[in-house]
């Protein structure tokens, strides 16, 4: 059991991170905390991709510039899979963009409502509805 866990340590961490992130999104009423939870959730995905690209005993897929020609490379050398790394670079960019838009929205919400707590916002909106007479 322990061995299995140790062998798949990365995946255990990923799952824990994922759950923590989702739980934060579900449980907190604070909008900033909710975004933090979202980021943790996304980070777990980054880790997932990175973990799966790891090849045991593989070197980082970084070539010496001078050895770029194929014939000079060691044909038996083992490298980690570079593609997921590249993908995750894109995903990180996306994550950053999302986070920044989210934070900008939180700033605007704070300006408009004077609060970033879920409950207060809902109450403010309810009162708006009640004024209009639902």
């Amino acid at each position: 059991m322990v061995e299995v866990l140790a062998e798949r340590f990365n995946y255990a961490v990923i799952i824990i991170l994922m759950m923590v992130g989702l739980y934060a999104v579900i449980a907190t009423g604070n909008l900033v905390k909710r975004l933090v939870g979202l980021s943790i959730f996304q980070t777990s995905v980054f880790l997932l991709y990175i973990s799966m690209s790891k090849v045991f005993g593989g070197a980082p897929p970084i070539f010496d510039y001078k050895e770029m020609a194929y014939d000079k490379l060691d044909p038996n050398a083992i490298y980690s899979n570079p593609l997921p790394h590249v993908l995750i670079l894109t995903a990180i960019v996306v994550g950053v963009a999302t986070l920044s838009v989210g934070l900008a929205l939180v700033v605007r919400i704070r300006e408009a409502y004077g609060s970033i707590e879920d409950d207060t916002l809902a109450e403010a909106d309810y009162s708006l509805e009640l004024e209009k007479g639902v």
Binding site: V25, G29, R34, D118, Y126
Partner: peptide
């Protein structure tokens, strides 16, 4: 402290149409 408010969701004032369902939604 997992503030679900499941019953709020279905109450007549309509938490289903409540403005902040993102936690629920997750």
């Amino acid at each position: 402290f997992v503030r679900l408010r499941l019953f709020n969701l279905f109450s007549p004032a309509g938490a289903l149409s409540k403005e902040f369902p993102s936690g629920m939604m997750a």
